[in-house]
Computed example of a mutant assay.
Amino acid sequence: MTPSDKAALRAEMRAIRKRLAEVGPEAAERAASHMADLPPGDLLAVYRAMGSELDPEPLARALVASGRRLCLPVVLERDAPMIFRAWTPGEPLELDAAGCPAPLPLAEAVDPDLIVTPLLAFDDTGGRLGQGGGYYDRTFAARPGATRIGLAYAGQATANLPVEAHDIRLHGVLTEAGYRSFGISH
């Protein structure tokens, strides 16, 4: 697949995700209701939704209520893996090097057991189409022991995403329809 083909696929999937967000405003709450089906882990990385990404805020609240700890990714350098800092909903955030909301530098740096990631599309083999910056793939490569979970609308599923050598597959995906494991080992 050429870079222009991948750019066109990203544009198409952004439009689909935007429509899904408009017609399914309750999807984030419904996805959070399936939290008990997630793989085990005491420390989970979530993200702060931007644009039409499925908002992990309801999931974050449910995880904290169940006794799990949270963290958020932080981009310090554009071509390096992200780091993670401890975070609890309601704590102050600032923009990181990629312009995403992130915990303040005084927050503890941590190593999550499970990383919840946004995406544009996913397939039945754990393939993930992201925004194209490579932040999550670099981070997944640097943290091979962490479980990788996509958070998405069920309608973001697609057949056979183009996967390149640097793309790292997800272990599962959580949608408003439930949790799906892809049977991928670490």
Results as ranks from 00 to 15, higher is better:
E77L: 12
R143V: 09
A49K: 04
P81F: 14
V74Q: 13
M50H: 00
C100Y: 14
A80T: 05
F122Y: 12
E94T: 15
T117Q: 08
Y136E: 12
D113Q: 02
A86R: 12
R61W: 02
L95A: 12
R48A: 14
P81K: 06
P92K: 04
V75K: 11
M82E: 10
E94S: 15
G127E: 08
A141T: 13
P118Q: 01
D123S: 06
A65C: 05
L119G: 14
G90A: 02
Q131W: 13
G132I: 01
P101W: 05
V75C: 14
F84C: 06
E77W: 09
A146L: 05
C100F: 15
V75Y: 13
P92V: 01
G90E: 06
A80I: 06
R138D: 10
G127C: 09
I115E: 04
I83L: 13
R69Q: 13
T125S: 15
A97M: 00
F140W: 09
I115M: 15
A65L: 05
A97I: 01
M50T: 00
G133R: 15
C71A: 12
G99D: 08
E77I: 01
D111N: 07
D55T: 06
A98F: 14
S66G: 13
Y47W: 12
S66V: 03
A109T: 10
A121T: 03
E77M: 09
